Amino acid sequence: MHSIAASIMCGDQLNLGQELRKLEEAAVDLLHCDVMDGSFVNNLAMGPYVLEQIKERTSIPLDIHLATEQPSKYIDMFAPLQPKYISFHVEVCEQIEKDIEKIKGYGIEPVLAVNPESPIEMIKPYLSMVPMLLIMTVNPGFAGQRFNHHVLEKLVVLSKLIETMENKPLIEVDGNINVTTVPALIDRGANVFVLGTSALFNHQKGTYEQKVNEIRELFEKRRI
């Protein structure tokens, strides 16, 4: 089964209430929320007060992506919002198992995130501990970057690693996800697709519902 997460950071920040209504009409499955600390990535985004108001105004489950150093600190900061998922980057975490358990202790599902250049071996020891993995197809920090095609090879390796697992973690992909890149990602095992500027929050014709349905049609074609 395939799901769509809308990257709310790419939406109109002065009209978030309107954006949330349109995303609900489009029936997206998750609201992907990028938290950036200006250190792990060279950008700042989405503090707890903003996400608290978003949480109050939508029924779409939150998928919080911590693009931060010191993940443990930010887990404690955002856990009170009770999102469905919190992801953190293995590249900066010195206590991965401990932070996985911390997230679970809050009743939230933990997700491990890796950058395009990071090897799959970094998450291999933890595959059975998490329900989902976030594979970045661009470097986190800014929208509109070019898709890293070499990540497709990583997805092939990852899919082979989890194919024999009883409880297979979902594979979420984020970064220039659109009608051009989705088919190859589906074929390599991706399940959850984060839509941002290139597929959803752009000035191309069509409503959010129409754009989301265009991606869902690709899901259906891949099932045939």
Rank of each mutant, 00 (worst) to 15 (best):
197 T>S: 10
95 Q>D: 09
42 N>C: 09
166 E>L: 11
32 H>Q: 09
204 Q>Y: 13
169 P>S: 02
104 K>I: 13
184 A>Y: 08
35 V>P: 11
10 C>K: 00
107 G>I: 12
112 L>G: 00
80 P>T: 10
171 I>F: 04
159 S>M: 05
165 M>Q: 05
95 Q>W: 12
123 I>N: 15
96 I>V: 12
17 G>L: 15
192 V>I: 10
181 T>K: 01
213 N>I: 10
176 N>D: 09
126 Y>P: 03
205 K>C: 03
121 E>R: 10
19 E>Q: 08
180 T>C: 01
77 M>E: 06
97 E>F: 06
51 L>H: 08
96 I>R: 01
203 H>F: 12
218 L>P: 08
67 A>V: 12
42 N>A: 07
222 R>L: 10
216 R>S: 04
121 E>Y: 06
221 K>T: 13
215 I>L: 04
6 A>E: 02
89 H>I: 15
63 D>Y: 06
212 V>P: 01
81 L>V: 15
115 N>V: 13
57 R>D: 14
111 V>W: 00
62 L>Q: 01
191 N>V: 14
175 G>H: 08
121 E>H: 11
87 S>R: 02
19 E>P: 08
77 M>D: 03
223 R>K: 12
68 T>I: 12
17 G>T: 15
175 G>V: 15
105 G>E: 10
106 Y>T: 05
23 L>I: 13
13 Q>Y: 03
135 I>H: 00
127 L>R: 08
92 V>C: 07
